[in-house]
Nucleic acid binder design. Sequence first.
DNA 1: CGTACACTTGAGTGGCCTCAATACCTGTGG
DNA 2: CCACAGGTATTGAGGCCACTCAAGTGTACG
Lengths: 264, 264
Amino acid sequence: MTTQQPRAKAAVRSSLAQKLAQFVTLSPAEAEVLEDLQSTTRVVRHSREIISQGRRYDALLVMVEGIAVRYRILRDGRRQVLNIALPGDLVGFPACFFESAPYAISALTETVLGCIPFRALACLFERHPRLATALFWSFSAETAVYIEHLTDVGRRTALERVAHFLLELMVRFQSIGLGDARSFPMPLTQELLADALGLSVPHVNRTLRQLRDDDLVRIEAHRVIVNDVEALSALADFDKSYLGRLRPLDLFDAVGAGGVAALQ
Amino acid sequence: MTTQQPRAKAAVRSSLAQKLAQFVTLSPAEAEVLEDLQSTTRVVRHSREIISQGRRYDALLVMVEGIAVRYRILRDGRRQVLNIALPGDLVGFPACFFESAPYAISALTETVLGCIPFRALACLFERHPRLATALFWSFSAETAVYIEHLTDVGRRTALERVAHFLLELMVRFQSIGLGDARSFPMPLTQELLADALGLSVPHVNRTLRQLRDDDLVRIEAHRVIVNDVEALSALADFDKSYLGRLRPLDLFDAVGAGGVAALQ
DNA sequence: CGTACACTTGAGTGGCCTCAATACCTGTGG
DNA sequence: CCACAGGTATTGAGGCCACTCAAGTGTACG
């Protein structure tokens, strides 16, 4: 089911390092620590589970390559897709904090994962506080994605949901160098889309059809092609700032004029 | 709108300290650091905004006393309630990471907030890594609540949603010492409930009525009284472990036999 | 005691679901 | 090279859950 193998030391920066570099400027030493953190890897094949609901886990996982999906299964089989994990994402959270994982993670493509034992994490917090804060930052940014997803499902129409979700995926794919200005690979089936958006499969299908008929987006050969980014964004009330426009605020370099006084 | 005032040094532990003590054993010194962190406070009155959508914030806030609600407003006025903030919760996240806050927070009762300037946070990460990891832990635990909320809204019926949400509130109130085994104060109007659960006000009302007719829960005088916790939990498929049964795993005291090997 | 807000209930509608059947793709083995 | 099987996508018909609109009833507070 899974294989252990040493990973060739990456010449280029890992996705995780690229992500954290948005928040703090990484020293060469810190960059190396990050790479070491992910040096033990596991490979998981397409459609295999990375983390199983109900089991116990004692390490953190980082997506190094591939695409995975987090979901929760209810007792009668209903499924809620929680989010899509892309390279650079920490996927052990928050499963590893519980006696039994509250949700599952499955690989949508062949996936390479870095294993970070708790020991290594403790070491990072003790000896590299800047990296720790960056992790904190990055982790908080994930919450913003959950918030948007919750808003999708709770308060948007089917059309808005699908449009919004596809745009979010597009921006996220762009930010990791997959996908261009108007298209990106589509790893989700309509069933997964439905379970992500709280809809039924037929209705997702009809909604996609409408978006296609209106010349806004189409999905072809496992690829999403956005015809009219503007119009689609307007329809979905999509503003990508929640995905990336984080303040590159370095707690240690530039606390600056902020502080208590700046609050209100 | 808000007032600044020094807070009397708490004789008892703050809610935040109580919460973090679940994850690591706090030394007296660490406990004091935590209290100092919250020593600058603001008071916000009932139904006033603590954080406004679209504005910029330069500090973190901790709920010291009171109850607040986080929500996101869409352009046409639709509202999604994201979560309920209770004492001990960090409410500045993730708003303070963005150039403009992606959502708002409003006080439901008179609320006392501790202000934590970034400077103080940086200091905490540098000098108190155990506290930093505890914050990390606690923050991750919040994600589990979002996940459950997302599942509520995406894949549960109205009846299940309301039941599940009320049970979650009950456990959360219990864990901070408000509310007893079968009842707790209800700070939300039906309109807020509706916006939290992705329902309309009339339907929330009808759903509550059904739960009352079935002798499961009733809301009286701003208080929720659960008649049959078992039956209600069964109806909602509620398992409170996602709220509290975190592993009291201390990275520094007890990394133990875990590590990579234990991972599957 | 009046005004505002929250709650309650009804009638009618519609968005999305369920069930069901058909078409399509993609890999696999004969 | 084709037949076949399994998953995936598509489309239709009918129904229900939850919505919208609207009116009326508490109930807290100035």
